[in-house]
Amino acid sequence: MELEFLGTGAGVPAKHRNVTSIALKLLDERNAVWLFDCGEGTQMQILHTTIRPRKIEKIFLTHLHGDHIFGLPGLISSRSFQGGTEPLEIYGPTGTEEFIRTALKISRTRLSYPLKFIEIDQEGILFKDKQFEVSCKKLDHGIDSYGYRVVEADHQGELKVEELSALGIQPGPIYGQIKRGDTVTLPDGREVDGRQFVGQPKKGRIVTILGDTRYHSHSVELARDADVLVHESTFKKDEEKMARTYYHSTTQQAAKVAKEAQVKQLILTHISARYLAKDVLDLRAEAEEIFPQVRVAKDFYVLPIHFEE
Rank of each mutant, 00 (worst) to 15 (best):
D28S: 13
E240G: 14
L75Q: 09
L75V: 10
M1Q: 08
K237A: 13
R54M: 02
G11A: 11
L115E: 12
I206S: 08
V192L: 11
E57H: 15
E133M: 15
I169N: 12
K25G: 01
F197L: 01
D279M: 00
G92D: 08
L72Q: 08
V220S: 02
T96I: 09
R108I: 05
V228A: 10
R195V: 03
A297K: 00
A255Y: 00
A297Y: 00
I59G: 09
V230I: 15
A32V: 11
D193M: 06
E40C: 02
D67V: 02
Y246V: 13
I90R: 14
T8C: 15
P292D: 04
L222H: 03
R295P: 00
A255G: 03
T62Y: 00
P114G: 10
E260G: 00
I56P: 02
C136T: 13
L266K: 01
T94F: 14
G39N: 11
E97F: 00
E162T: 12
L268T: 05
R195M: 07
G194P: 05
H63S: 13
H16R: 04
L276I: 06
K179D: 00
H306W: 01
L126M: 15
G194V: 07
L3D: 07
E163R: 13
D282M: 06
M44I: 07
R180F: 04
K55P: 00
L88Y: 03
N31P: 01
G11H: 09
K298L: 03
T234W: 09
H141Q: 03
E97K: 13
Q252T: 02
V184Y: 07
Q45W: 08
H141C: 12
F197M: 06
Q156F: 00
E221A: 10
E308Y: 04
D129A: 12
F132H: 11
Y113W: 08
Q265K: 15
D227H: 13
K278A: 07
